[in-house]
Write a protein that binds this DNA or RNA. Structure first.
Length: 478
DNA sequence: CCTGGAGTTGTCCTA
DNA sequence: TTAGGACAACTCCAG
């Protein structure tokens, strides 16, 4: 009896079995052949960074396990790899969930054409966002550029989240295409670094679908009740920490939003609203990227092309290493480097510091985050950097410059976050912890700190650099 | 086409 | 100590 032609299920940024439209569609056809392609070629300068590659390795391991070891992993330009793989296995159809990075859209369009020409059925599905980015336009048919009207209109007109669709484990198990030993050696993708720094980085994380579900549960059980206020305090456990899971599609935004709405009905309405709002910010970033694909590299406001950035590699290096002499900035940058993550409030503080106090081009920060974050996401990362810089479509007013000392006093008042990531300052009292350079010598001595030796003196003066930034922004008006 | 209100996350000075 | 207003001007968006 001839074997049934398999259906290719191409996993991409949807490394999950729950709430996965492509999986459901593929399963309906009978025999499913799951595959992942590491495509560094098509992404160009935006190929995945080092931290996020480590996460990907673990996540693929987890997915492969839930597919009983039958996930194929391939490497190369997917525009060639996928059609060749489909032909090799006599696949009758290919299913995937859509992605929205400009390079991915261009590549996928080409693949669709190639496969269709070869007589293979191709279907892409919506499983990555709450709403397709070509929906929710203004009445004149153009995209929103301001978040609040976008948000209001989306809630009023776009479909509400629904319960996660699931597949039957036994059915899936039976449907997995049985062919020669799958090439499931994820190690061959060489995603992990030669030096073993990733184990420490990932020690607080559980990449993969099970980890994503556990993270959502613990957030709903504990974090969300204090989300609205608590999310500003980096030492608290009030943020969801779902960003890497969402980035890799280990959980769908639909499922996260639906669960949050349920939690709202149990009495955390205002909290869950704010969480869903953050999910909608993620949507908005993808929406903007879809409609303005150059925003990853170019100022959205072209006025900023004239901005008089400074170009100082030493200052940038101090920022990257967490050696600026401003503890909240250094704590954030060290959290990033050691854990692949940074608390949202602190991301804004360090970004503002790089752009406004050090006056370095936002694209330097964007690249560093891209390489260091396990949740590095083209849409969110680019939009957020433009937002802080003031060059984005819906950006902070230029005079809004974070003072890292004030922010630190306000959002890490007892210094728990700083003490954790900048241990050499641990003995300093809360009064002086936020700005050691202005602490009395005696206080520093008592805490065992010699400035410039144990911890850097502040690399710039806040007042002076603030005024410099304001003056620089003023020149754009002329 | 016109009009008026609004715009994620701040800081600093003054009374 | 604390609260309120200035900080610019512009673009976006809805009516």
């Amino acid at each position: 009896m001839p074997r049934q032609a398999p259906t290719l299920l191409w996993f991409r940024q949807d490394l999950r079995l729950r709430d996965n439209p492509a999986l459901i569609a593929a399963l309906a056809t009978g025999s499913v052949l799951p595959v992942y392609v590491l495509d560094d070629e098509s992404a160009g300068s935006w190929r995945r960074g080092a931290a996020s590659r480590c996460w990907l390795h673990r996540s693929l391991d987890a997915l492969n396990e839930s597919l009983h070891g039958k996930l194929w992993v391939l490497k190369g330009d997917a525009a060639e790899v996928i059609p060749a793989f489909a032909a090799e296995h006599g696949a009758a159809a290919v299913h995937w969930n859509r992605g929205y990075e400009p390079w991915r859209i261009a590549r996928d369009k080409q693949i669709k054409q190639t496969l269709s020409d070869a007589g293979v059925l191709v279907e892409s599905h919506a499983g990555t966002l709450l709403w397709e980015p070509w929906h929710n336009l203004k009445k004149d048919g153009t995209p929103y550029k301001v978040f609040t009207p976008y948000y209001r209109n989306a809630l009023a007109t776009q479909p509400a989240p629904v319960p996660a669709a699931t597949v039957d484990a036994a059915q899936l198990s039976a449907a997995l295409h049985d062919c020669a030993q799958p090439n499931n050696k994820i190690d061959t993708l060489a995603l992990l670094p030669r030096l073993n720094w990733h184990e420490g980085m990932l020690s607080d994380w559980v990449p993969g679908e099970a980890g994503a579900q556990a993270q959502l549960s613990s957030f709903l059980d504990a974090g969300i009740e204090d989300y609205r206020e608590g999310r500003d305090f980096p030492a608290k456990m009030s943020v969801s920490r779902l960003s890497p899971h969402l980035h890799f599609g280990e959980i769908s935004p639909n499922e996260a939003a639906f669960a949050a709405n349920l939690s709202g009905q149990r009495g955390h309405e205002s909290q869950s609203e704010h969480f869903v709002r953050e999910l909608v910010w993620r949507e908005f970033s993808y929406y903007l990227l879809y409609h303005f694909p150059s925003l990853t590299d170019a100022n959205m406001k072209s006025d900023f092309d004239r901005f008089p950035w400074l170009d100082d590699a030493d200052l940038r290096s101090a920022w990257q290493r967490g050696m600026t002499g401003y503890p909240i900035v250094d704590a954030g940058m060290r959290e990033l480097y050691t854990t692949g993550y940074m608390h949202n409030r602190v991301r804004m503080i360090v970004a503002s510091f790089l752009i406004k106090n050090l006056m370095q081009d936002w694209r330097h920060g964007e690249k560093w985050f891209w390489d260091c974050l396990v949740d590095a996401d083209l849409a969110s990362n680019s939009c957020s950097w433009q937002w802080v810089a003031g060059s984005g479509a819906d950006a902070a007013p230029y005079f809004r410059i974070f003072n890292p000392v004030t922010q630190s006093q306000k959002f890490d008042p007892d210094g728990a976050y700083i003490r954790r990531f900048v241990p050499e300052l641990a003995k300093l009292s809360a009064k002086h912890l936020h700005d050691p350079s202005s602490a009395p010598t005696m206080e520093l001595q008592l805490a065992g700190i010699e400035l410039g030796k144990d911890y850097p003196a502040a690399i710039v003066d806040l007042k002076q650099t603030r005024e410099r930034a304001l003056a620089a922004y003023k020149t754009l008006r002329d």
